[in-house]
Amino acid sequence: MERFDVAIVGAGPAGSSAAISLARKGYSVILLERAIFPREKLCGDFLNPANWPLLERLGVVDEILSLEHEKVTAFRISTFSGAEAAISFPSRNGRTLFGLGLRRSSLDDLLLRSAQREGVQVKQGCKVGSLAKEVGGWSLSLGDQSPGESVSSTFLIGADGRNSWVAHRLGLALPGKADKYVAFQTHLRGARGVKGNVQIHCFPGGYAGLVGLGGESANLCFVVENSHTTKKGISLEALLENHLYKNISLRESLKGSEIVGKLRSTYPVHLPPRRSYGDGYLLVGDAARVSEPVTGEGVYFALRSGSLAAEVMDLAFKRGNGSAEQLACYLRLCQKAFYFRQRANRIIGALVYRPFLLAPFLRLSSTTSFPLRPLVDRLCGASGFLE
């Protein structure tokens, strides 16, 4: 049985970020991923400017900018009542911070290849069959493309998403409250008005996000009430006509566009937080449920939590102590790092689901830029890349 310092289950941004950071510190790392990259995933496909310092530390900025993308320098939001506001990202010395509309499949594949270059052993198409705590660490049996193979590690990181198998095996799967919302995502060709901006459009019972991906491509994500999707044979066309098109701005943006991607969905949208640390393990990214899917910051939370996990495990190795008490500092670091962003997500989430509150907020912002201006400035960060 091959042994590693750290075994990471899940090779999305959180898992790859942790793997790269740990490998650079000299630790042996195995990264286990059940899919084969590149693979599509339900995501808003938006990189907030705040991600640039994290990506720069990972050494992947030039590669990311070489991928097909849409440079984003403004945020636009509207309600079905007609209230609308557009705010540019922060500027310094006449130059504007920028984010990217970028396919998640391309980003994840790039990060995984970067982890391999750092010496991380990667197994794709590999479903973990069992997980057991043993003296001195963990034992994982591998299935699918590695039947009968097992690996062991001193520490374990669960980076396998919101419905984390690792969390379930560790007994951390909390019963969720019944959620009234379902999230959908697809790709389009020919959407209007998506050059240079990321958009949120509210409609009765939900909201949609729209961002260009370079060329004629765009990503459309939207959340609707579950009661509207229970009818058998519900189609994207019906959802558009009966819900999204109630917002005139969104209808104009989608007019004449062509659906070119598979319609993906996930339920429930909102999940309760779960314990993210314990004896010899940490959970990162969506597995730790550190984010709410409103402002398109899932990648930021994933990358940051992955790097924080690497810092905490490095300290645990140096102290020879992987107890829950030692690893508890990971939770405190995450709470400190994400405090403002989580509060902002809750505020924006409350507004987009209540357009009667959002409309006056937007009308005020369209004339004075307050309070949307300081909120966008904080969410974008002060150290992103300039256009």
Rank of each mutant, 00 (worst) to 15 (best):
S114Y: 00
S366K: 07
L110H: 08
Y277T: 07
S383K: 14
S253E: 05
S66F: 08
K255F: 05
T367K: 15
L271F: 08
R343F: 09
G190K: 07
F361M: 05
F37W: 13
L379K: 12
R274Q: 12
L303T: 00
R354E: 14
K255M: 01
H187V: 02
V72G: 02
S150H: 13
Q121G: 02
G215Q: 09
Q326P: 03
L271A: 03
F361N: 05
G306M: 00
L170T: 11
R319Y: 03
I8Q: 01
G136E: 10
K177Q: 14
G296S: 04
G384N: 11
N51M: 07
R92F: 12
N345R: 08
L172A: 10
A310L: 00
S307N: 05
N48V: 01
P360V: 04
A14C: 06
Y181H: 08
E70D: 11
L263G: 05
R363F: 06
E241V: 06
T79S: 11
G196T: 02
V290L: 15
A86L: 13
R264A: 03
L102K: 06
Y281V: 00
N345C: 14
E70S: 09
P360R: 04
K232V: 09
R192L: 12
T295W: 00
L351M: 08
L271C: 04
A167R: 14
G320N: 06
I77H: 10
E68Q: 15
F184T: 00
G44V: 01
E325F: 09
A173W: 11
K318Y: 02
Y27M: 08
R363Y: 07
E325L: 12
F155L: 08
G193L: 01
S88K: 14
L131H: 10
E237M: 09
T367L: 15
M313F: 15
W138Y: 02
T154Q: 05
R92N: 06
R76L: 09
V135T: 13
R346P: 06
V194P: 01
S28C: 01
S105C: 09
G119K: 06
K336I: 04
E241R: 14
L220E: 04
R319G: 12
L142C: 11
E149A: 13
D108N: 11
G193S: 08
E40R: 09
T96S: 12
D45Q: 02
C43F: 00
R192S: 13
L102E: 05
P38V: 07
D5E: 12
Y339D: 11
S146L: 15
E311D: 15
F370R: 14
T266L: 08
N242L: 12
L331W: 05
G125N: 06
S227C: 11
S383Y: 12
A218W: 07
L333D: 02
A167I: 13
T96R: 15
A115H: 01
A86I: 11
R117G: 07
P53T: 06
L386R: 04
C329Y: 04
N321A: 10
K231M: 11
S366G: 03
T186M: 02
R304K: 15
K71Y: 01
W138I: 01
L172N: 11
G26C: 12
F46G: 00
C380P: 03
L244C: 07
R341D: 10
E68C: 05
L54P: 03
R343W: 10
R113G: 06
A287R: 01
P268R: 08
L102Y: 07
E33C: 10
G101A: 06
L97M: 15
N93V: 07
A288L: 04
K195E: 10
L327W: 07
V72M: 04
